[in-house]
Computed example of a mutant assay.
Amino acid sequence: MGTSSRLRPAVLRGLVPLGLVSIALTGCSSGSAPAPTPTVTQTVAPSGGSTATPTAAATTPAPVQTPQPSATPTCGAEDPTSAIQQAADRLGPPAGIEGATWDTAAAERGGYDPCAALSWVVLRPAMSSGSSPSAILLFHDGTYLGTATKEQYSFEPGVTRTSDAALSVTYEFPRDGESNAEASGRATATYRWDDAAGRVVMTGDVPPTP
């Protein structure tokens, strides 16, 4: 081996030559701009650590409409016994029959209606006959108004209802020369409750006065 080979500087294994380090550093510091730092967006939760959940707005229920009760008529007493007795006391004794009294217990009450604008009760004497006088008592909403006529006519009248506020009455009477048993005369009158006037309006005919 020659002398020149012994004088070559030895390269230590594992060491980087200074020239190579300088080149590496010069490459890192070239003119290119540094890479931008990424921006991190962070969602902030409300205090308590939980995200609020939206809730539906509270609604107030609509008020319930209560139907108003319809108007009803004013009704009188279901039992007209007291009114019948008072009417009999005001009438006095039956016309033309001395010592007679009205039979209030046997009064015909089939036409009485405590809620009708016009209703009636037929009052006859005690121990009456077919030709005995009768009185028709008129009522408005169960309140006694008075008799259908001022006179008390013989024979029992025929009373029919034509409406809630109207009645038709057929009176019997003997014509000239007829006996009571032969009576063939008829007279018809109507009675109507006039709400505006507050009274009963009569139209038609009644038996002739002897």
Rank of each mutant, 00 (worst) to 15 (best):
L123V: 05
P80G: 02
M202Q: 15
G31A: 11
T26I: 14
P133V: 14
A116C: 00
D113P: 01
T66M: 02
T43L: 13
V64N: 03
S129R: 06
A126E: 10
G48W: 06
V21E: 09
D113V: 04
V206N: 05
P63E: 14
A52R: 12
L12K: 13
D141Y: 10
T26E: 06
P93F: 09
A117T: 02
R109G: 02
P93L: 07
T203G: 13
V64C: 04
V11L: 14
R175N: 15
A33N: 10
Q65A: 12
A35Y: 12
P67H: 03
S29E: 03
Y153S: 04
G27S: 09
P174N: 07
E178H: 07
P157M: 08
L12Y: 09
P46E: 04
V206R: 00
A57E: 13
G2C: 14
A71F: 05
A95C: 05
C115L: 06
T101Q: 14
S82M: 09
P63M: 10
C28R: 07
P210T: 04
T66A: 03
T143K: 14
V21I: 14
V200F: 01
A135F: 03
P207W: 01
R90A: 10
S132G: 07
V121S: 01
W120E: 06
G76Y: 00
I84F: 02
P157G: 07
S179V: 08
L137D: 01
A77P: 04
V200K: 02
A166M: 04
V206A: 02
S30F: 04
Q42N: 10
S70D: 11
E98F: 13
E182I: 07
R192Q: 14
G111W: 00
V21T: 12
G111N: 01
A183G: 03
A57R: 14
T37A: 14
Q85W: 03
T149H: 09
L20Y: 06
T203M: 03
P80A: 07
A135T: 09
T188F: 07
V64P: 00
P114K: 05
L118Y: 02
T3G: 11
A187Q: 09
Q152W: 02
M202K: 13
A83W: 00
T170N: 06
D89R: 09
R124V: 10
V11D: 13
